[in-house]
Nucleic acid binder design. Structure first.
Length: 572
DNA sequence: GCCGTTTTCGGCCCGACTGTTTTCAGTCG
């Protein structure tokens, strides 16, 4: 996929152009870069398939940019970009990562001091060469040094599952303040993106000053970037920024809509407002000077003629048009799940007894749980062999007797291994005795695309296999997906009735949102599981659900929204 | 440079905060 490479070049071209003049060409390049970044299809394939015309079908790509993409595919270079680099030989994308540094400052620092890299920048700041420059000063110089320090320990984006508890802690503290009327998570955390750059929090209050002062003095804050009457921005010791915005309660809905983003979604909604002769900003929806909405997000969307759009869908990926036509899908809700079928017990080295897992499931309102321990190929995980599985089955039968009165049932499955030849590591005569069988790849992950696809398809065709766990094997920020032909896998899933898992583990979230969309389109059913190795991890379900929501999955696409009786029909 | 349920030309989302300046450009979201 050359999408990301070209996107990066377009971003940099925009930056270079911006150092000369911030006209709409820069915006066009930035938009094109964003659109390429989020494009599912490979631009190179589009080009090989349909030529320039195909490229021009991509929104934000016109004749000129299509030619540039063609040039890159053919020659590996874009002449205009090379020219711009020669004119301003600065690692522009690197330097503007320093908080407070933008392209204009970067250009001046190159011209005056020859700064080309972050290293040069750091040296110039340390030698106090920046402060005396016109337009700069002591504070700017210090901020640059601090920004560089933070970058050095910056882990980049954090996993949603890691950052969410931190957000909740801060929100809890804010809620305890009597001046605070309402709070909400906003930004990409509210949209439940799988990784989060920084945290955005919105507060409704009539005393913003008090809230702001309280916020910037919270423990763990290493640097206050900005603090104004309605907004402040800080850097936490955990390595990320938190932005707080305070508005009056009457504007809470419009502020939340604005602050949740995405940026592209906001631009799209504001354009709709303009077309209707309205203005949308964080204070409300306005007709002339008259405010016609703002208290709730529903009001805001309705006022500009849209139906309410769930935060997880706000990526400007067609949702605005559907909201305009009142045709949005009703995506799965956080309370629709009736049970978790990918749970490990202490039989395979998990932490809890089967009974403990079941009791926890009952307490969080589930109607069933599925125990699916690892099988024998995974020795390191104490995988169960055939006789152990049969023994476990007897045990579960007995435990189920106890839960009969509670209208709860433990289903018995396993998470078997798809071996490198596509066979399953447990004999069929045992597999067929289980309530259901999950199969997953846990070894030989680097084989080529055709072999991996054939391997998984062979497993899917085993009549005893019901579910494929974490189908692409990715570990976010750690390990790429296995090479697979997803189209073929989806086709086979549809033919065989195989269920694909959405694994809720924060570093898996596998299938991911765009694949969920593809699966839904292909008519393939999915199941959201946690892969819990101890009972409290069943709470991770919300991250799987959020991924499903980002993939626009509806309740009917997800089989564990069904009661046990109906669910089991999928496993016959 | 892109794009069209006002347009093939003339628009392109909108506002907050800082630092340096003395009224605003640059940066951020």
């Amino acid at each position: 996929m050359k999408n990301k490479e070209i996107a990066k070049i377009f971003f940099n071209i925009a930056s270079f152009l911006e150092t000369e003049k911030a006209d709409f060409r820069t915006i066009a390049y930035k938009r094109a870069a964003l659109s390429l970044e989020s494009l599912d299809e490979d631009v190179e394939e589009i080009y090989l398939d349909k030529g320039l015309a195909g490229l021009e079908e991509i929104p934000t790509i016109g004749k000129n940019l299509a030619l540039k993409i063609e040039e890159y595919i053919k020659t590996g270079k874009i002449k205009e970009y090379e020219k711009l680099k020669k004119k301003l030989p600065v690692n522009i994308d690197e330097i503007i990562r320093v908080e407070g540094m933008g392209v204009k400052k970067a250009k001046i620092l190159y011209q005056k001091l020859g700064v080309k890299t972050i290293k040069d920048l750091e040296k110039s700041a340390k030698d106090h060469k920046i402060a005396p420059l016109f337009g700069f000063g002591e504070k700017t110089e210090n901020n640059i040094l601090q920004g560089i320090e933070f970058l050095k320990i910056d882990k980049g984006r954090s996993l949603l599952g890691f950052i969410m508890p931190e957000v909740e802690k801060i929100i809890l503290k804010l809620e305890n303040l009597k001046e605070v009327k309402k709070t909400s998570i906003a930004g990409s955390a509210r949209r439940m993106k799988e990784t989060i750059g920084d945290i955005d929090i919105l507060v409704a209050s009539d005393n913003p000053e008090k809230v702001n002062n309280f916020f910037v003095s919270l423990p763990g804050i290493k640097k206050v970037w900005a603090k104004g009457p309605t907004k402040s921005s800080v850097h936490l010791k955990e390595g990320f920024d938190v932005d707080l915005r305070i508005v009056k309660e009457e504007s809470f809905g419009s502020a939340l809509q604005y602050f949740t983003g995405s940026k592209e979604h906001n631009i799209a909604t504001r354009k709709i407002a303009i077309k209707k002769g309205l203005k949308l900003n964080e204070y409300g929806v306005f007709r002339g000077k008259k405010k016609i909405a703002g208290q709730t997000e529903e009001d805001v969307y309705n006022a500009i003629g849209l139906s309410y759009i769930e935060p997880e869908m706000r990526e400007d990926d067609g949702e605005v048009q559907l909201a305009l036509e009142n045709k949005l899908p009703k995506i799965i809700g956080y309370k629709d799940i009736k049970g978790d079928l990918h749970c490990h017990s202490n039989w395979d080295g998990g932490k809890n007894l089967i009974e403990e897992m079941a009791e926890f499931a009952i307490n969080i309102g589930y109607e069933y749980i599925g125990i699916s321990d690892h099988t024998k190929f995974l020795r390191i995980e104490n995988g169960l062999n055939e006789s152990q599985l049969l023994k476990q089955r007897e045990k579960i039968k007995k435990i189920n007797e106890k839960f009969k009165t509670k209208n709860f049932i433990i289903l018995h499955g396993c998470e078997a291994n798809i071996l490198s030849d596509g066979s399953i590591d447990i004999k069929d005569e045992v597999l067929e005795k289980l309530d259901y069988v999950i199969a997953g790849v846990h070894s030989s992950m680097k084989i080529d695309r055709k072999k991996m696809t054939d391997r998984i398809i062979k497993a899917m065709k085993n009549p005893n296999v019901d579910i494929i766990s974490h189908p692409t094997g990715r570990l976010i920020q750690k390990r790429d997906e296995y090479q697979i032909d997803l189209e073929k896998i989806l086709k086979t899933a549809k033919e065989t009735g195989i269920i694909l898992e959405i694994n809720s583990w924060p570093e898996r979230l596998d299938l991911k949102d765009i694949y969920i969309k593809m699966a839904k389109k292909a008519g393939v059913k999915m199941i959201i599981n946690t892969d819990a190795h101890e009972k409290s991890q069943m709470h991770l379900m919300k991250f799987g659900i959020s991924q499903a929501r980002r993939g626009w999955a509806e309740k009917s696409d997800i089989i564990n929204t069904l009661p046990a009786g109906e669910l089991l029909k999928y496993f016959i």
